[in-house]
Amino acid sequence: MNTKSAARWAKAGKYLLLFLILLFLLFPLYWMLITSFKTNLESYMYPPTFWPKDFTTQSYISLFTENNQFFVYYKNNFIVSALVAAITLIISFMAGYALSRLHVKFNPVLVALLTASQMFPVVSRLISLYSILRTVKLINTVPGLVLAVTASQIPFCTMLMSSFFDGIPVSIEDAANVDGAGRFRTMFSIAFPLVKGGALAVGIYSFLMAWDDFLHAAILIQSDELRTLSVGISARYLGELSYDWSLVNTISIIGILPMLLLFFFFQKYMVKGLVAGAVKG
């Protein structure tokens, strides 16, 4: 086999592998999408149909009219995630700046603490978390949940912000300092605009992670009006009586949409941010 046809085989193999991997990643989403457009009866056909024989928007309509407690969960998830993202951003921005710019002897200890904190799973903290929040009467409240979820995001986001700052030369801030600008002013008016991309990445990342939260909300929130999305879906739609697969797939689609849109719009920053954190960190 000469090199030219070997190269062609390699190329074909490459595209085949690419196709297979993409198929694996994307087909389940397609599957979910079309099941949401099938009638319940058609969903239970075996062998399954790859395109709805009876295309119907019935599940979507039923979701908007009857099963609309779902949107309460949705709204709650948004509120909690937005708050978590905002607070995480502020706190990790400040802490990351301190870690990167200020060389205090305690820094390595802080880094070790932050790294260690990322490793502790939520499950082990649940009971104590519950007692602590119960003592300050923040059980079943939005602030309580927001604080708990923020806490699990801060370690990673702080390290991320710190590595962003590491990548930006100190010269501009030094210049500002010489010009007599105070520390806070330097940080907010000068350093912040420089890491805007990174800040956006951190904000969106913590939003996504908070959107995904399950365990915190499961333990800390008890009333239906405050429930967030993952717990709400698990509680209400994976009930004891029966599965409604078409509905489950429908709410899954709607549950994913904002995240997909968010990601597509901000992916440039997200990608740069995640990459910078990992490659340099």
């Binding site: 509120i79 409240t141 939005v142 602030p143 009333s223 209400r236 009930g239 409604d244």
Partner: peptide
Amino acid sequence: CLILSLASVSALAEGGKTVLKVSNYAVLES
């Protein structure tokens, strides 16, 4: 933050009524 925490802290019971809390899983079953 302030608004939301106030909103969630404010009591759900309407004025003057006695609240009866009943745990009921079945309300979530369609």
